[in-house]
Design a protein around this nucleic acid. Structure first.
Length: 423
RNA sequence: GGAGGAGUGCCCGGAAUUGGUAACGGACCGCUCUCGAAAAGCGGCGGGCGCAAGCCCUUGAGGGUUCAAGUCCCUCCUCCUCCGCCA
């Protein structure tokens, strides 16, 4: 959500930004509606003012005749007021729907482009793994080692179902525990968040109204969060923080649920694209300054890069192009890990900042040094998603005998084990 | 799921004639006073419109009754007490 004043004063900037993001929004209609809103508001407020004043006098009026007259007068005024209020309500409905459509303005440094094909590599770390034997996919490796079961996953869950089993499960625990130790050194507050959330919080983060298809819903009209970003951002909704509390740094762990409604044909096998997974997510709330946002954005992304480097998995970082940005995002980096069997880098992390786009919807503010309340700025970045990280980890660390070498930093979390091999 | 009680201004307390238009106190911020601090005093301390005076909105959310709703009615949410169920 942007400020309507800002929209009115910067229509061209927003229109250009929307175009860069390949998003449609009818700003002229919005401004037209806003004119109507202002006009109606004026009429309504004037009538309410009269009503308030006369009504106040009614209670102190002793003469019952006069009193009756005033009441009758107010009854008439009320009928007119009601009509105007109904009109206003009608205008507000469309106004609000349009306001939810206005995308945040992408940063100047965001490259032009249609989709993820046009994202630009800004960093490349490590060597693409070379094998002196015929490498296998994570699906084959895990199945042969009996550390994942996709057939039974499909039997129990359905399409995109999976079981992690034995050392496959243990490897996930190891990654979670290692990630906790790694990131908590950077002064995050760890959180385990609810995965079932109320609708309003998905509007807050910007997942609604535009991504409704991709979200699971309960019979109570609650939603299953696709990321801990949603509950974590909701944590301080409708609250006013003190400047001294900022920046707030949360490391949130939660299950994540995604319908993947728009990607039926894609990544139909294995652990790349699944309906449910676990994720450790970094979330930051900082002061309302672009410089602060940029600083923490770089920091968040670097944290995850460092984490991947410590595992020794080759990766690259891209800056997302305009067409690959979400509605609220100002700028986004993706970290992509090398997947040998696909001969491609695949995304495992997204670092984005939003300025006050989200916090305006969440109504999360802070009291600044000058005593003014402002909306905080919000950012988030994946720390680590499981099981997707396993795809690269396993494929890059496979050995000729079909076993998996466990990255050194994870070994202590696997009881000192160095390889996962066939029993 | 059932029965009863409660929810008040950025925060914490806490009033409001059994319908008459949200007191007051604390905390916090600014100023005065002070060498400095404390104390005391004054002002501020939700949102919108307006150059301003001022006006409108805001008592968990949304509706309704009424000239007028914190107060009455309906739906929902949250918390507390009890019953039932339960990892």
């Amino acid at each position: 959500m942007l400020d309507i004043k800002f929209i009115r004063e910067n229509k061209d900037i927003i229109a250009t930004g929307a175009k860069k993001k390949h998003m449609e929004v009818d700003l002229d209609r919005l401004i037209e509606l806003d004119d109507q809103r202002k006009e109606l508001l004026k009429v309504v407020e004037e009538k309410r003012a009269t009503q308030n004043e006369v009504t106040k006098n009614i209670s102190s009026e002793q003469d019952s005749g006069k009193r009756e007259g005033m009441i009758a007068e107010m009854q008439a005024l009320k009928a007119g007021l009601q009509k105007e209020e109904d009109k206003l309500k009608e205008v507000m409905k469309e106004w609000q729907a349009l306001m939810l459509q206005v995308p945040n303005v992408p940063d100047m440094s965001v490259p032009e482009g249609d989709d993820d094909e046009d994202n630009q590599e800004i960093k490349n770390w490590g060597q693409q793994t070379q094998f002196d034997f015929q490498p296998k996919s994570h699906i084959d490796i895990m199945t042969e080692l009996d550390i994942a079961d996709f057939e039974r996953g499909a039997k129990v869950h359905g399409f995109r179902g999976y079981f992690l089993k034995g050392d496959g499960a243990m490897l996930s625990y190891a990654i979670w525990n290692y990630a906790n130790d790694f990131f908590l050194k950077k002064e995050f507050t760890p959180m385990i968040t609810p995965a079932i959330v109320r609708k309003q919080h998905l509007y807050g983060t910007g997942h609604l109204p535009n991504e409704a298809e991709d979200v699971y819903k309960t019979q109570d009209e609650d939603y299953l969060a696709g990321t801990a970003e949603i509950p974590t951002m909701g944590y301080y909704a409708d609250e006013v923080l003190d400047k001294s509390q900022l920046p707030v740094k949360f490391l949130s762990f939660s299950p994540c649920f995604r319908r993947e409604a728009g990607s039926h044909g894609k990544d139909t096998k294995g652990l790349i694209r699944v309906h449910e997974f676990y994720k450790v997510e970094q979330v930051i709330l900082c002061e309302a300054s672009h410089e602060e946002s940029v600083k923490w954005h770089e920091w968040l992304n670097r944290n995850t890069e460092e984490f991947v480097e410590s595992l020794g998995i080759p990766y690259r970082t891209v800056v997302n192009c305009g067409g690959d940005l979400g509605q609220g995002q100002v700028k986004k980096y993706d970290i992509e890990l090398w997947v040998p069997m696909e001969k491609k880098y695949r995304e495992i992390s997204s670092a984005s900042y939003f300025h006050d786009f989200q916090t305006r919807r969440f109504n999360t503010r802070y009291k600044d040094a000058d005593g003014k309340t402002r909306y905080v700025h919000s950012l988030n970045c994946t720390a680590i998603p499981t099981p997707r990280i396993l795809v690269s980890l396993i494929e890059n660390f496979q050995q000729s005998d079909g076993s998996i070498k466990i990255p050194e930093v994870l070994q202590q979390y696997m009881g000192g084990k160095e390889t996962i091999s066939k029993k």
